[in-house]
Amino acid sequence: MSGFKSLVARDIRLALREGGAIGTALGFYLIVIAILPLGLGPDLNLLARIAPGVLWVALLLSALLSLDRIFLNDFEDGSLEVMIIGPLPLELIVAAKSIAHWITTGVPLALIAPVLGLLLNLDINAFGVLVLTMLVGTLGVSFIGAIGAALTLGLGRGGLLLSLIILPLYVPILIFGVGSVMAVIVGPSSFTASFMILCAISLAAIVLAPWAAGAALRMKFQ
């Protein structure tokens, strides 16, 4: 387990010291949200109505941009190969890297979402729920994304291919993430139901995704 923890700590440290990584995702998130009202018009009622959906979609896109970072650097400098030979099972390596990605991308994006919610005139009562659902949802985003990152590892046009493969798989997270925020703002459906299912999807992703991503990585290094 110490290997697992130190791998998570290492990845977080690398992401922090690299600097640009987290900032780029946050900057992208901000610019997408800021440019949207320019296209839709400044009608605050309209913006308030679409705010949860827009915030979630932009979050998925921003997270998507950083997904290839999960394995790419370690793949290019060969440290991924060393990790695979090492004592830690490959599935746990994938899990550690996904958790590190969640902490360095999902959590900051979720935490900044309320600020962007202000720009979109999002109902103040929904801020807490928004952050909560995003924290849970981005966990699933990172783990499912790890599958895509592993599958497209080392392919030239990785970024676009990754989006094509992974975005359809994010549909359930998007629907239940937005659903639980909407439940708080307009009702009448239950917040608990959507939120529970969102938790279930993320938990299932945590358990199952490392197997799929691990199998993909194993085939890369055969």
Binding site: L151, P168, V171, P172, I175, A212
Partner: peptide, 27 residues
């Protein structure tokens, strides 16, 4: 490698397809 990797993706899709179907109904 292409065959095996797309096989993994196909199986991941098989796991997620019912969830997508269910969530879209819900949505």
């Amino acid at each position: 490698q292409a065959g095996k990797l797309s096989a993994i993706l196909a199986l991941v899709g098989t796991v997620i397809l019912p969830i997508i179907k269910f969530s879209v109904n819900w949505w």
